[in-house]
Design a protein around this nucleic acid. Sequence first.
DNA 1: ATTTAGCACTCGATCGATGTGAGTGCTAAT
DNA 2: ATTAGCACTCACATCGATCGAGTGCTAAAT
Lengths: 345, 345
Amino acid sequence: MAVLTDRQKLILGAVVEDYVFSAEPVGSRTLSKHERIRYSAATIRNEMADLEEMGYLAQPHTSAGRVPSQRGYRFYVDHLMMQTEIDAQTVQRLREVFQQRIDAVERMIQQTAVVVSQLTSYTSIVSGPRRNSERIRQVQIISLSPGSAVAIVVTNAGTVHDRPIRLPDDMSAQELERLVNLLNSKLAGSPLAYMKSTLYQEIATDMAGVLEHYEGALGVLDELLRVAEEKKEPVFVGGAINVLAQPEFHDVEKARPLLALLEQVDALYSVLPDEEGGISVRIGEENAVPALQDCTVIAATYSVGGQPVGRIGVLGPTRMNYARVMQILDYAAGALTDTLQRRLG
Amino acid sequence: MAVLTDRQKLILGAVVEDYVFSAEPVGSRTLSKHERIRYSAATIRNEMADLEEMGYLAQPHTSAGRVPSQRGYRFYVDHLMMQTEIDAQTVQRLREVFQQRIDAVERMIQQTAVVVSQLTSYTSIVSGPRRNSERIRQVQIISLSPGSAVAIVVTNAGTVHDRPIRLPDDMSAQELERLVNLLNSKLAGSPLAYMKSTLYQEIATDMAGVLEHYEGALGVLDELLRVAEEKKEPVFVGGAINVLAQPEFHDVEKARPLLALLEQVDALYSVLPDEEGGISVRIGEENAVPALQDCTVIAATYSVGGQPVGRIGVLGPTRMNYARVMQILDYAAGALTDTLQRRLG
DNA sequence: ATTTAGCACTCGATCGATGTGAGTGCTAAT
DNA sequence: ATTAGCACTCACATCGATCGAGTGCTAAAT
């Protein structure tokens, strides 16, 4: 693969930045008026023709300016993009989210999604935090009426999972208490995820000795274990309508598949790339999801105790302000990591 | 106000139904081919001109067919609409939601929103269930680390509210237990909403006698009370993208304010009309919210123990299939009422 | 007195011709 | 190697003509 000359890099960078700003194909004349570019339009045309031949630029039609191709964006992100400082006002907006100390973690994550979407004018997707490092702190079963109760599992991180369950009709309060005590002695300190796989047998055996309603209690245990099973990490979306603000999605038929995707919470796990560490950028067809062929997804990881537990991402058109989004995500992921560390660590 | 002749009613009804189906202005010729209408196009034209003069029909432009006005829809809904039987397949789809017995109530409500939106092809908004009839069953404070804990309030209906709180650093386990016992003895059985207003003073006084960390415990009480305060009834939206499928919103600029509204969860309370009982229909400008001037919102109430606790609504263009939506909402609200009654009652 | 056939008229939508202009590629001069 | 010049391309906007669905009105038919 041919290496780009400095001048070609200069022009490619200028095309990307101009196009990101204007959303219009960039012509040679426009570029020649650029301060940093001191070549004539004709020279630029020659270079642009070469860049197109190499696949970095594309032409919507013969008599139009050039547009960066997926490859052009990739090169820009990898080699040309200048990382400037994040501005104070943006930092301030982000900080406000993390300074409300007493709020629940999920709410904070959700607000992060909203603020990031507002700051970037794109759509934000935030996942997590993943719960598999959390350990069971306490199990409670609170009976509501004969036969029905609610099971509550509290983890050491302070997250509370609850689920309605059924009890054997004739189980006494004393026996329920014994059951809960047994469950607590067995489950406390073990990770949520282990509840099902390893502890079931052990607890079942122990229950046989202590409880009259062995069968019924087994059912309770079954239902309790579902709490852990069901607990997928949540995904929050902020600013889904922002896609409509982008000229590339002014056509409803273009926007619909995207919005449909964003409404399907389950599908969003596969949108956020699950690379380890750092900020990942998926441009156009680098995204696995077909609906995102004309989109870029940038995502950063946030962690607790060195373990990545979630991702915060931005979804927008490939014509995206890469530098700014990366700045914001970098900051937000760092702040999330710090805040969660302080809160859960 | 002049009363409509039978023939005018027939024609008005036919215009509404044809327009709801086709989304195109309805001409006299089209109607004259209708089976039920045995008049010539000319007669129909005369009647349509009269109906327009009376404000039931409107003409997009001189050489176009007629379109129902807001008033036309209103008359149709009030006097002309035929209530047919709901079809078996639709009933089946709805039943599936309510037959999963063991699921949490909120999840069931959310699924109701999704299924109703799918069945109607419009957007569904479901609120509730309102919690103010629920009473506190039990309060728990589970300490996580010195100084931090999570407060849990369980109601008699089995809903669980939790909130991270701070504890005085030097509060002992014994004292925390005393605090929780005190809170339980005072709060158990009282409605969530009363927690703040009436019980605060009483509990505060009692605490002074029993607890060493009076100040700290007071703080805990404060934080606990926020659980009740924050607990607005939830609102779920299903099928927000369905608005894009409607021809009236094929233009992004038309669709955007609507989708923006649907993304603002807080704003949705004011979308669902809060009339008591029955099914309410708000057509066009009958909606208070400005963004809904071209929309119809139909909503039904569901109840627990005779008390309305939530609403299930459908939002679509004024050109809506009123009969079908009302059928579905009627059924869904009834099923929700029954299911919740069995579950919570 | 109603209803309907007939007809001129309206007006949005569609289509084609035309012009415009931004932008290109190529060639020749610098 | 760079650039000025120029012919060429092509999307897009504009204009006019045409088309046709639909109307309102009048006069004939029932």
